[in-house]
Simulated scan of single mutants.
Amino acid sequence: MLTVSALAAATGYSVQQVRDLERLGVIASANRAGNGYRQFSADHVRDLGAYRDLAYAVGPVEARRAMRAIRSLPTDQATALVCTFHARLNQEREQALAARAALEAIHSEAKTDANPVEADAMTITELSQALELRASTLRFWEQQGLVRPERIITRAGSARRYQLAAIREARITAALRAAGYRIPDVRKAITAIRDLDDAGHSLEALDARLITIAQRGLALIRAGATLVQIIRPIAEKAAAAPAMSSPRSQKP
C-alpha cells in the first residue's frame, strides 16, 4: 500500500494533484486505513501514468472526462470512446498533411506564374465561393492581417479586389485554419510566405506539427494498454453478474 505522498513521488504529481485527480474520478478512490489515511496501490500508479499519456495525447480536459467515463460506461461505449481519440488524431494528421501539400503547391505556383493580369483578380464573392467560405470570413481575415486585398472605387463606393498574391494568402489561410492553426500561428506563416521566395518557415511549422502528432499518437497507444486493463475488469464483472443472479446458480 502507498500513502498519498508515496504515490505522488512515484508518479511525479504533487500531493494536491493526486487528491484532485482522485476526487475527479481520474483514478479509483483509495482505500482508507483504520486511522483514515488513504491507501493507494500499484494500480493507482499505473492509472496515473495512463492519465499523463492521455492528457498529452488529447488534452487534460478530455483525458479527465475519459478516465472517469470508462469506469462506468458499458464496455462497448468505453471502447468506442477510446477509439474516437485515435480517429481524431488521425484526422489532425491528414489535415496537417493536406495543409503542407497546399503550401508546397502554392509555393510552386509562385515560381511558375506569369505576370498577373486584370482577369486574374477576383471579387470577394468570387473568392468566397471558390474557397467555400463566407464573405464575412474573408473580411475577418483581412482585419487580422492575413489577407490583403486591393480597394477599388466604384459608383457604389469602394470594393475589395483580390489579386493573385491575396488569393494565395486566402488559400494558405484556409488550409492552415482547416489544420487547426490559431490566428497568431497563421499570421506567422503568412508573414513568412509573403516573400514568396521562402515558404520554409511555414513548412517547418507543419513538419513540427506532424512530429508532435506522431508523439501524441505514441502516447495514446501507451495509454491504451492501461485503459484496456481498466475496462476489462468492468466487463468481467458485468458478465459475471447475470450468472450470479440466475436461478440455476442458486441452491434450493
Rank of each mutant, 00 (worst) to 15 (best):
S246Y: 00
A130D: 09
I190C: 09
A189L: 04
L220A: 04
L203Y: 03
R161P: 03
S246Q: 04
L89S: 03
R46N: 10
L203R: 11
L133K: 11
R139Y: 04
A241F: 01
E132V: 09
L176C: 01
P247E: 05
I211R: 14
A243V: 15
M244Q: 10
D47E: 14
P247W: 02
A214H: 11
I183M: 08
H107Y: 11
S246N: 13
G180Q: 09
V147L: 08
D120M: 08
R139A: 07
L21E: 02
P247H: 05
R248W: 03
N35T: 09
H86I: 00
A156D: 04
A243R: 14
A225M: 10
I167D: 12
L73V: 13
L218K: 04
E62G: 02
A66V: 12
A174H: 12
L218Q: 10
N90P: 02
L7P: 06
L203F: 04
L131V: 04
A225P: 00
G224E: 09
Q143A: 15
M67C: 14
E109P: 09
L220C: 08
Q77G: 06
I234A: 14
Q250V: 13
A121W: 00
A119D: 07
G224F: 00
I230C: 12
V45I: 14
T173W: 01
E94I: 04
G180K: 14
A130W: 00
A10R: 06
V186S: 15
S245C: 13
R52I: 03
G217K: 00
R64P: 00
R168M: 02
T212E: 14
D195F: 02
R222S: 10
Q143L: 13
S202M: 12
E109T: 01
T11H: 10
G145N: 10
K251P: 03
I193G: 06
A30G: 08
S14V: 11
F40C: 03
R209E: 09
Q129T: 05
V58A: 15
A208G: 11
Q77L: 15
I221N: 04
G59P: 12
E142D: 14
L164A: 10
R222V: 03
D43E: 12
A238C: 07
